[in-house]
């Protein structure tokens, strides 16, 4: 077999090279470039090697300290979000109607929060939770509970968590609902004939059929909550103190607030790697679960 050599073929892939270069490689390399240098403004840069990375990954330094604080805070936030939204989404999906006009109605209602832009969600809750004019804040305060998301870290955390649950539980519920819809009626009928309890129906029929969509839901909610920025930025700006300063908020403070481009670039890269690592873990788990299923089916 003789392959014809035709260098003109390169022109066909050139558009892809250009697009990828400008959309991914050049910006990424800019960040890599910043991460190994220091600047005092005036577009003057000084070589710093891996200095920023050493500082960033050492919790005893000022930079490392704040990075790890934000990282743990963010991981805790994601854990709380998953622990609430996944079970709640399942419960909501289970209680959604399966037949009739109420299906369309509940789907629309469920989808509404998903259609609202992030900064609008933040603004809505910022007003809603205010103690003086916000309906929620005013009511809670008048019930005798000391609640102020501007001054009290616990209040701020609760507000952000509740806001995120309000915004994103629908997504989990809709995904689970799709999984539930794929179960033929015969399964429920067979379970009734077999005398299965409600709990047994859930664990033996519904949960196994929802497993794949649940993995996707967990992945999406983890990624989103781990990269959360807009809503807490609008609501609390990362405060009170640093109580709600998650990694992305800290990153923006560092890069645009303090204009520490080198430190911010190093933090960006590490942040990115953490996300990639978690993605990889999820991906492996999902592919393995699939492979196991295939092997079982074969």
């Amino acid at each position: 077999m003789n392959k014809t050599v035709n260098q003109k073929a390169w022109f066909l892939v050139l558009p892809v090279f250009v697009v990828v270069a400008f959309s991914a490689i050049v910006p990424l390399m800019t960040v890599v470039n910043y991460s190994v240098q220091d600047t005092f403004g005036n577009n003057q840069f000084f070589w710093n090697g891996v200095g920023w990375f050493q500082e960033l990954l050492d919790p005893s330094t000022e930079l490392g300290g704040r990075f790890f604080d934000a990282l743990w805070r963010n991981l805790a936030f994601s854990a709380v979000i998953l622990a609430i939204e996944i079970p709640l989404g399942i419960v909501v999906a289970l209680s959604m109607p399966r037949h009739g006009w109420t299906v369309a109605f509940s789907l629309v209602v469920m989808a509404l929060p998903l259609l609202i832009p992030w900064n609008v969600v933040g603004t809505i809750w910022q007003v809603f939770a205010r103690g003086d004019i916000g309906l929620l804040g005013w009511v809670v305060n008048h019930l005798g509970v000391a609640y102020n998301y501007v001054l009290d870290p616990a209040s701020a955390w609760i507000t952000i968590v509740v806001m995120d649950v309000w915004h994103w539980t629908s997504l989990v519920a809709l995904l689970c609902y799709a999984g539930l819809k794929s179960i033929p009626d015969a399964y429920y009928q067979a379970a009734r004939i077999d005398g299965a309890s409600r709990l047994a129906v859930f664990t033996t029929i519904q949960l196994p059929k929802m497993r794949r969509v649940l993995l996707i839901a967990v992945l999406l909610r983890f990624m989103d909550s781990f990269m959360i920025y807009t809503e807490p930025f609008v609501l609390t700006g990362g405060g009170p103190g640093n109580a709600t300063t998650y990694v992305s908020i800290d990153l923006v403070k560092l890069a645009l607030g303090q204009f520490d481009l080198g430190k911010a670039a190093a933090m960006s890269i590490v942040y990115n790697l953490v996300i990639l690592a978690v993605c990889w873990v999820f991906y492996t788990v999902m592919v393995n679960a699939d492979a196991e299923k295939k092997e079982v089916e074969a």
Binding site: A186, Q189, A190, P208
Partner: peptide, 13 residues
Amino acid sequence: IAQVFQFPVVYDT
């Protein structure tokens, strides 16, 4: 009463 359906129903897990 027992009933067998058109599509086989087994508990996968």
